[in-house]
Design a protein around this nucleic acid. Sequence first.
DNA 1: CGACAGTTTGATGTGTTTCAATGGCCGTGG
DNA 2: CCACGGCCATTGAAACACATCAAACTGTCG
Lengths: 265, 265
Amino acid sequence: MATKAIPTIVQLTGAGVSGAPVCRPCAPSGPRSVKDCLACEVRHLALCAALKPDELLSLERIVVGVALPAGKTLFSEGDKADALYHLTDGTMRLVKLLGDGRRQIMGFAFAGDLIGLGVRDGFSSSAEAVDDARLCRFPLKDLGRLFRSFPEMERRLLDTAQRRLASAQDQMLLLGRKSPMEKLASFLLDASARARTAGRPDNPVVLAMSRGDIADFLGLTVETVSRSFSRLKADKVITLPEPTLVRLVDLDRLEELAAGDNDND
Amino acid sequence: MATKAIPTIVQLTGAGVSGAPVCRPCAPSGPRSVKDCLACEVRHLALCAALKPDELLSLERIVVGVALPAGKTLFSEGDKADALYHLTDGTMRLVKLLGDGRRQIMGFAFAGDLIGLGVRDGFSSSAEAVDDARLCRFPLKDLGRLFRSFPEMERRLLDTAQRRLASAQDQMLLLGRKSPMEKLASFLLDASARARTAGRPDNPVVLAMSRGDIADFLGLTVETVSRSFSRLKADKVITLPEPTLVRLVDLDRLEELAAGDNDND
DNA sequence: CGACAGTTTGATGTGTTTCAATGGCCGTGG
DNA sequence: CCACGGCCATTGAAACACATCAAACTGTCG
């Protein structure tokens, strides 16, 4: 039943990486225990927050832990959507491709985020691990029953979908109308804000993804992203101790840029 | 209670236009009657489809009809979101603005579409009538109660939100990575497909919106949109009897363009 | 130490924007 | 009835921002 779809996952976890990280709150694969849920660091962010501790038992029979090494694909665009995932640790990217290989990243997911929303027929995008990731898997066929028992869960899911839709619209504005500098400023502020709400350090922001990923998220080329970073650095808006570490120095200027009501340089 | 929020609407409908169109399925303003719902041409597309005819009585006490003349604003980005709307007739656009006036259209809504999804704090975008529009208004505060009585409605809403998220992702791919020709091809195919599912003529497609609206939807300028139309016409992919009327001639080529796996011209 | 992948920087090209002008349509008013 | 003005769409010419092509630099891992 629930085990039927697991082989794919198991195959992924095991593929090519012997040192795959062991999932702390979740078992690397196989059923979870309630103890895991109680210890889960991001439980307050998730669907599970709709449940009281004693109700978590209902999850035990349904949820399966998944470990996904960096670079691996959880599911691909168009795959039959048979589960919803909750990212408990790591970073993932949601990717769409054009026929000739052009790539657009729909968004990044961090610990506490749901993955697998936005389904039309199959999954609307592929999900790939940026760094080593751990997830909890909720089979869709069990979800309906769960929602009937705990309507609060369904309400939270709807809320989440709404917030995701709002973010998607912000991104549409960014992609359609913002300049490279404005795009990067928006991206950095967003990354910082999300790190903050997730309880990770938000001022020197750690960027788990490569320049290429950022470019494909912002609708730019690697070179333009890199040049924009350099420009922000030259303008003393940020410092860049390492390529993956960004200190936001002039927040006002950054927000001015992101909002697009600036004197264009 | 429900009447508290109506004045805004009444003001809108009445503002500056004496010849505001009378809402056929919905009364121009004020409460609806069940008879209206039964006669509603787009009921099968809406939340209301979750209800059996005899259950529609529950709606009567909640839903209010709204008539909105072309060009008028239903709500603005950031407004407190106190209602969900169902467009029964006409066309609307969802708009976001940048500080300096740059505009991005998040999408167009046609008869049968829900408006007011994607709420974060307030509405995430403004909603404006492209042509004369009529809507049904569902106050949010009554919606919770309605969902408890008819869980099927909430499920439909979640489904709708998911499909909207998937469309938003398609649009992100378009905005970030497609060329003007590819953007326009995608737009025309989508317009045709949506007209078809709504039961409107889908091959000579009628475009209710201006070139400017299309430009702001596709992240282009009016001039580039116009040039792309001309190019498609010259390539015998479409004909353009009138600026608002597009006949799709070479569907294969159009789909090739939209998918982005083409030999770039 | 050398190979490699990722990042940055430089030089060049080009597709889209910007600026400008023309033509068509429609409603208004002479 | 036609003249006029406004709005929208189209087309042309020019400028420029970002992409492309190319090379140097950095850090990492064998």
